[in-house]
Simulated scan of single mutants.
Amino acid sequence: MADRNTTGEDLTFRLATQSDYDAVMSISEGVYEGRDYLPAFYRSFVDDPDVIVFLALVGSQVVGLRASKITENGTAFIVKAARVAPDWRGQGIDGRLSLHQDEWMRQNRPTVKYKRSTAFSLATGVVESMNKKMRYIFGMPFIEYQCGPGLWWRQDPAQLAQLEPTGLPDVVPLQDADDDFCTAVQKWLPAGACGGYDGKPVILVDWDPYTLSPTNLKRLQANNTIYTLNHEGESSLSLSNTYLSPTVRILCVQIYSKDFPTVLKHLLRHLKDTSHTYRSDVLCVGVFVPQCELDDTIHDLCKQTLQMEQVHPPKAQALVYESEM
């Protein structure tokens, strides 16, 4: 049975296929000012049995999309992407897609007990909508800068070593994380990170909320570079991934540590890795840290020392929401 949007048009819903790629890209044109992640991930979303991608259609025209990933051993899902065609925005289509998705989850994934989503604090309309529909859990500072390949450290990434703090060991690839490691890292998470449905600690990984657990860290290693640093009995954690958007290469870095020197040590390693591999790409670097007091310091590092171009003003945050099914 067809649903209706606010203008009375009949809406139908179906699962997306690979052949819908062009139609989906057409409704996503211009999203995130050319830094949209969906072109890089759409095909893998459709192929992943744990990612459910629904389309909304008026007749045969694709007018909306919702993609969600089943997580936490089948007990939760996270909203990975939501799109509405420009000419159809403001007509309730995403809300209808959300209701259809939730009902499908209840019928086809009965073990799912709650859903999680994120919003950018500067997207005020989205935040207002989320505050009405879901429960706010916590926020993390999000710092984003862009640079071309001509900067001094892009041309010779080894020069980043001169910025490294003294007295700290190198960051090293994470091997087998256990419960003790997760407990050690948990103390660096934002306030409220354990305030979700199940009371377990939650981390952000490229805007997606996951429970901090050995199982999830092992799964995340498939698509992320993960480092740790152990010093004076304290453990820290960082994760990054990189992909091409329509206009720039995106590098997304999350760092969970106690202070700026350890944050800096982690960040420089991820910048060095990416610059070595992608020397000629324009790079957009997004950094998530749990401590609000580090926001200004990291902005100064990116703008003054690394000489990158600021994308968003200070005090921007990634906001995490949750609701029960």
Rank of each mutant, 00 (worst) to 15 (best):
T6D: 11
T277Q: 14
S28G: 15
P39L: 12
H231L: 09
E293R: 08
F13P: 01
L217I: 06
F13R: 02
A123G: 04
K69I: 01
P290L: 03
F120Q: 09
V185K: 01
I143F: 00
G90L: 02
I203E: 04
H299F: 15
V253C: 02
D180C: 07
Q221R: 12
V62D: 00
A123Q: 13
D208C: 11
D94M: 10
A123S: 13
R4C: 02
P169G: 08
I255L: 07
T211R: 10
V282K: 08
E234P: 00
V62Q: 01
K272F: 08
R109V: 05
P313G: 04
E29Q: 15
Q291W: 09
V253D: 00
T7I: 10
Y210S: 03
E293Q: 12
V263A: 03
R43H: 13
N131L: 11
R249I: 03
I137C: 11
L306Q: 07
A2T: 13
Y256A: 01
N5Q: 10
S28V: 04
K200M: 12
W153T: 03
A85V: 06
L15I: 07
D176H: 14
I143K: 01
F138I: 01
N223V: 08
S98N: 11
Q254A: 11
P49H: 07
D22W: 09
V51F: 00
L268A: 03
S129K: 00
I255T: 05
D102T: 12
H312A: 10
S121L: 05
G139Q: 04
I203T: 05
P201T: 06
R66Q: 11
K133T: 13
V282W: 10
L122S: 12
Y197G: 04
T17C: 08
M25S: 10
K187M: 09
T225V: 13
S275C: 15
K132C: 06
S26Y: 04
E232L: 12
M140A: 14
L294N: 01
K200P: 01
N230K: 14
D20P: 05
V311K: 09
S236K: 04
A177V: 07
G192C: 04
E9M: 11
V311I: 14
V253P: 00
Y145D: 02
Q107N: 15
G74S: 11
Y256Q: 02
L220G: 04
L189Y: 02
P49R: 09
D22M: 14
F142H: 08
Y227M: 07
M308G: 06
Q307P: 02
V263T: 09
M1S: 14
K265P: 02
V282E: 09
S26T: 10
L212Y: 03
S280Q: 15
V127T: 12
V253N: 00
D273M: 06
Y114N: 08
Y321C: 05
V320S: 06
G64M: 05
T166V: 09
G8P: 05
T305P: 03
Y243G: 06
P313T: 04
P209V: 06
Y32W: 15
D10T: 05
P157E: 13
L168K: 09
T183Y: 09
S19Q: 14
Y136E: 11
Q291L: 13
E309H: 10
H231K: 14
